Amino acid sequence: MEVRTIKVFTTVDNINLHTQVVDMSMTYGQQFGPTYLDGADVTKIKPHNSHEGKTFYVLPNDDTLRVEAFEYYHTTDPSFLGRYMSALNHTKKWKYPQVNGLTSIKWADNNCYLATALLTLQQIELKFNPPALQDAYYRARAGEAANFCALILAYCNKTVGELGDVRETMSYLFQHANLDSCKRVLNVVCKTCGQQQTTLKGVEAVMYMGTLSYEQFKKGVQIPCTCGKQATKYLVQQESPFVMMSAPPAQYELKHGTFTCASEYTGNYQCGHYKHITSKETLYCIDGALLTKSSEYKGPITDVFYKENSYTTTIK
């Protein structure tokens, strides 16, 4: 009895394709271990004539594949690729409408935090270190965002349907971005203890939790000093293409032309909904596939993004 075979390709990165001759009487799992086709788990399936010449994702289970996976995804987590594939199996079914010149995501599976993050990423200057993220990001900007969303979920250790947080998501993504040249110098002034300067680099240099107003941050924000008295913390120097200011959701007025974009969060910790506000020729609110415009805006804002380049204080 002759062994019926077909020729397929296996890959971990969709760049390096490895030619395989597979036995049609055995499952993919018996031949390769966990195997995925377009995100779908085909591990328990036997090869079919229609699979001839198709590319299958496999887990990096030998040295060659491990090197290829690390170079593309910059992670050695053995569960990463499987999590990416199972997320992709959902995100490829989502709709990605162009809204006001940006790629958004039609609401499904509690994905409003991903839509808000995706919209924000198209408006701030950011370059990702893992080629996987950078490639998928370019495709997302062009309207094909399924891979990018699935990668975000995998890097953030999230599953489809789980509630997510924009600030946490951005923080994970910033860790995989090139923020080497970003720098922030802060000064804390206390009447009792004097003053202390701190220099922050990388992710810490672009994120701040405690106030939404970048102007206020430049002037000074009140913080408790270690001595128990009130101290003032203010920005001395900022070198970065953008800054992200966050605070627990509270009524906040966004003035046209003073910011790049913002995240609105309605609801409580267990259950809520994100919308995205962007400042173009007027203010726009993007909620999944829905767009509304207004000249002014007041609502429960939790993150505001500002364009920056270089700032030095005039406070002496």
Rank of each mutant, 00 (worst) to 15 (best):
D63F: 08
I315D: 15
C271M: 14
Q195S: 15
P224L: 13
M209V: 15
Q238H: 03
V58F: 05
G272R: 00
N61F: 15
M24Y: 10
S171E: 08
C225K: 01
H276F: 11
A136I: 03
K106P: 05
K229Q: 13
Y57T: 11
L200E: 08
P130N: 05
K183R: 13
K293S: 14
Q31R: 12
S104W: 01
T55N: 09
K106N: 10
Y73S: 04
S246R: 05
Y214I: 12
P97S: 09
T211Q: 07
L235S: 01
E168L: 09
W107F: 05
A247L: 05
V58I: 11
L153P: 03
E215R: 06
H18V: 07
Q195C: 12
T27R: 10
V42F: 14
R83W: 03
G299Q: 02
C112E: 04
H176E: 06
V8Q: 02
Q216A: 12
T35A: 08
V12T: 07
F217K: 02
T232G: 00
I277A: 00
V160K: 03
L186T: 14
T35F: 09
T27W: 08
M24V: 14
C225Y: 00
M24L: 14
C112Y: 03
D180F: 07
L17G: 06
L81R: 05
G53M: 14
A40V: 14
H256L: 14
N178S: 09
Y73I: 02
I223W: 09
Q98I: 12
S50N: 14
E168K: 08
R141C: 13
S25I: 09
K95L: 14
L126Y: 03
S295R: 14
A69S: 10
Y306I: 02
V304E: 00
F259H: 01
K127W: 06
Q20Y: 10
G288H: 04
Y172K: 12
P60H: 07
E2P: 11
Y208D: 06
Q196L: 10
E215S: 08
P78L: 09
N16M: 08
I124N: 04
L200M: 10
T64A: 13
T120R: 02
C112M: 03
Y28I: 06
S246W: 00
K275A: 12
L153G: 03
T91E: 04
F9R: 10
F9S: 09
N89E: 15
L163G: 12
L102I: 08
E125G: 12
Q123V: 06
C193I: 03
V206R: 02
N147R: 09
Q196N: 11
C156Q: 08
M207Q: 08
G288F: 01
Y113Q: 02
T5G: 10
A231Q: 02
L119W: 02
H256V: 14
W94G: 03
Q197P: 08
A40P: 07
E204M: 08
N129D: 08
L153E: 03
F80T: 04
H273W: 01
Y311Q: 13
L102N: 04
S171L: 10
V243N: 00
R83N: 10
C112W: 01
M207G: 03
G53P: 04
C149T: 10
A146P: 05
F148C: 04
K183A: 06
S310E: 11
D63S: 09
M26V: 13
Q175P: 10
R139K: 13
D41N: 10
L200H: 14
L200D: 10
A205E: 00
L290S: 15
K95P: 05
M244Y: 01
F56D: 05
F70D: 07
W107Q: 03
F174D: 03
N16I: 09
P248L: 15
T314S: 12
D63A: 11
Y36E: 02
H273F: 00
T75H: 07
W94R: 04
P97M: 15
Y311L: 10
K316F: 15
W107E: 03
I15R: 11
Y84M: 04
M244W: 04
H74P: 05
T282Y: 12
Y137K: 03
A146M: 06
Q230S: 12
G267H: 11
Y269I: 15
P249D: 02
S240K: 01
K93G: 11
D165N: 14
Q20H: 14
P224N: 14
C227V: 00
K158Q: 05
Q175W: 06
N89L: 11
I45L: 14
L291C: 11
H176V: 07
V203Y: 15
K255D: 09
N178V: 05
T260H: 07
G53D: 10
K275V: 14
K298N: 13
L153N: 02
T103C: 08
F80L: 06
D135Y: 08
I223D: 07
P130M: 03
T10E: 06
P130R: 04
V99W: 12
I223L: 09
P241Q: 10
K293R: 13
Q230K: 12
V236S: 06
S25Q: 15
R167G: 01
F128R: 03
A115H: 02
A108W: 02
P78D: 14
I223H: 14
G228P: 00
A150W: 00
V189I: 10
Y36Q: 05
Y138L: 15
K183Y: 14
L212W: 02
L291R: 08
I124D: 04
D38F: 10
L17P: 07
Q251L: 12
G210Y: 01
A177G: 06
Y297C: 06
I124G: 04
A177I: 02
Y155G: 01
A247M: 07
V12C: 09
H48L: 14
Q20S: 13
C112F: 01
F80K: 04
R83L: 10
C149D: 04
A250W: 05
K229R: 14
A250D: 10
S50R: 12
E125H: 08
L102W: 06
M244S: 00
K93V: 10
F305A: 00
G220M: 00
T232R: 09
Y274N: 04
L114W: 03
M26T: 06
G29N: 06
M170A: 01
E162P: 00
R139F: 08
T292P: 00
S86M: 10
L173M: 15
T199M: 10
I301D: 01
Y306G: 01
T11D: 05
I6T: 11
T313K: 14
S213E: 06
Q175K: 09
A108C: 13
R141N: 08
N111C: 00
Q251N: 14
Y84H: 05
F259T: 02
C227L: 00
E125Y: 06
R141Y: 06
V58L: 09
A177F: 01
V12K: 07
K158W: 05
C149H: 03
E2V: 10
T199Q: 09
D38Q: 12
Q197C: 09
S104I: 05
D38V: 11
A140V: 13
V58M: 08
K191G: 13
V160M: 02
D180P: 00
K46H: 13
T260S: 07
L179R: 01
T313V: 12
D135C: 07
S181E: 15
P47C: 06
T258Q: 13
K44Y: 11
C261P: 00
M26Q: 13
H51D: 14
P97N: 06
K218W: 06
K106Y: 11
V67A: 12
S50E: 14
K46N: 14
Q196M: 12
V221F: 10
A262N: 01
Q237G: 06
P249L: 01
W107N: 05
L200P: 02
H74L: 15
E2T: 11
L235A: 01
L37P: 04
